[in-house]
Design a protein around this nucleic acid. Structure first.
Lengths: 195, 195
DNA sequence: TTGAAAAACTAACTATATTAGTTTATATTA
DNA sequence: TAATATAAACTAATATAGTTAGTTTTTCAA
């Protein structure tokens, strides 16, 4: 009946991520997680710090997977091609992991160093991709905020089903990224070296 | 003790919106709402269809306020100026009503005609603002999706505190909108008539 | 004035998170 | 190997939320 289920924190996080992606973030409860793992819910407290703790771990896990996905997609590429690949990978990640992606932006970041580190990892990667457009420091900050906004907004709206069906959303995403890049080029006096 | 509290659906929605904005969307519970209104929670069922029903009503109410805000801000303006004003008003609304704004994208839209109508209202307004750029039908759809993505992403990230402090976010928002407009101009072969 | 409808209530049930305290399996150490 | 300590599971119990059923009470209309 209870000969040690052999759980650990990582197993819990993986199982919770599955629930989040399969059934939605609302269904990630300790009761559901315990049931899936064949254990009583108080037992989970041996590995996580309650539901809030689990959510924090989910956010970090999601950010790490997201970072890995966009790093793999854009690695080796430069200029516009790298930005397109990153953007596509970002949105694809949100499509494949709708629940996990959502957790990424749900947790408050008060003094959670793991979460901050994982967040910064993604941020740093995006900054790197924008360096080829030779923006000044301020322009670079605007551009990072802008690119993140655009990708997150697109991913979130698509996941909520806020876009109708008719037209392929991949085309819309590429259109949006091109428009953004074209905007950067036409706004900055710099000639840019992208591509 | 209980001589008719004189509640109605609208009162409930307003009170729930206040909780959402003051304490966050997680704190919008029937228990908290009932306590604020000086009533027992089962009494709320005389006016709303449970928590899910309340959330739907909140979403509609949020969309209507949002629509009113962006309509007021962009009314009478044309071209780029109208787009800037609408974008600013959109993000300002999310700043003033963080909880209520969040509810607008939380409810599932399955056959809720009120919600669909309110959503469409916002959509129609945005489409109208983009007409001056003389895009073809497909381009217009991409542009609407793009502008919504960018505004929602910006509002959501800012509300989550995902942007650091250093640089004023209003400047970033204007930068993003200009970049988007410049991108549309430079991408389309059309000359555009915006401003 | 009487009766119907609506709005509040109490009571009860389910589900969840969480804490406290207990048992038991595993690992460490004498 | 045997004893013991640690960690992982458990049961039991509490608090809070949502919800339903059924009851009382107010209000409005006939």
């Amino acid at each position: 009946m209870s000969p040690r289920a052999g759980l650990d924190t990582h197993t819990l996080v993986l199982a919770a991520a599955e629930i989040a992606d399969e059934q939605g973030i609302e269904e990630v409860t300790l009761a559901a997680l315990a049931a899936r793992l064949g254990v009583r819910s108080p037992s989970l407290y041996n590995h996580i710090n309650g539901l809030q703790g689990l959510r924090s771990l989910l956010a970090v896990h999601g950010l790490e997977l997201l970072n890995a996905a966009i790093a793999a997609a854009s690695g080796g590429l430069k200029g516009d091609a790298a930005v397109y690949a990153m953007g596509q990978a970002y949105v694809d990640f949100a499509r494949k992991h709708p629940g996990l992606y959502e957790t990424t932006l749900r947790a408050p970041e008060e003094g959670n160093s793991e979460l901050e580190r994982a967040s910064e990892q993604v941020l740093t990667l995006i900054i790197g991709l924008l360096s080829c457009y030779e923006l000044d420091a301020e322009g670079e900050l605007h551009a990072v905020r802008g690119l993140r906004s655009l990708l997150h907004g697109f991913a979130a709206l698509e996941n909520k089903g806020a876009f109708g069906m008719p037209l392929d959303t991949n085309i819309s995403l590429n259109w949006l990224i091109s428009t953004f890049i074209a905007g950067i080029r036409s706004m900055s006096s710099s000639t840019g070296t992208g591509q």
